[in-house]
Amino acid sequence: MNSLVKYFSDFFSALKSLLTGMKTTLKVFFRKKTTELYPEKRGSLYVAEQFRGRLEMVHTEDNHHHCVACGICQMNCPNGTIQVESQTVTNAEGKSEKVLVAYRYDLGKCLFCELCVRTCPHHAIRFTNRFENAVFTREKLALVLNRPGSSLQPKPAKPAPADTNTNPAKPE
């Protein structure tokens, strides 16, 4: 008797679960499709914000970046993708400091692991979701990320000791 009840209850519970599955898939059937038509709808593509397309250096509107040329990104890069070229200059206060000359980034070697961005103490670099990286020669993949004529973002004016030199001019 018990097995007979089980036979019928199994039958109907299986039927119910199958119908539930069919309801779910029918909902998915009418859902908006996620495929992006690439060359046709190039202007209105949806690329996820966190997608790692290529590295770029953050620049402000008046052409300042935040890179202090510490070289942490270069040390963390597992593939030798980043070369930070810097020179030591003496600033107006008479202290010597490192200044970024060229931030060389070879897209062809990049693993897109994002270790450089995560370790940057000044949030000077970030990944964009621009994905159209294909070029015809390998030389075009070697990029210089700091824009020509850009310089380090000056520190906000300290409210502390009002000295003569409030605006330490950065040498190029």
């Binding site: 898939t25 998915v28 499709k33 996620t34």
Partner: peptide, 13 residues
Amino acid sequence: KVCAAFQCRLGPN
């Protein structure tokens, strides 16, 4: 096409 729609794709296009 139907398979694609069930998987939120567009299928051959």
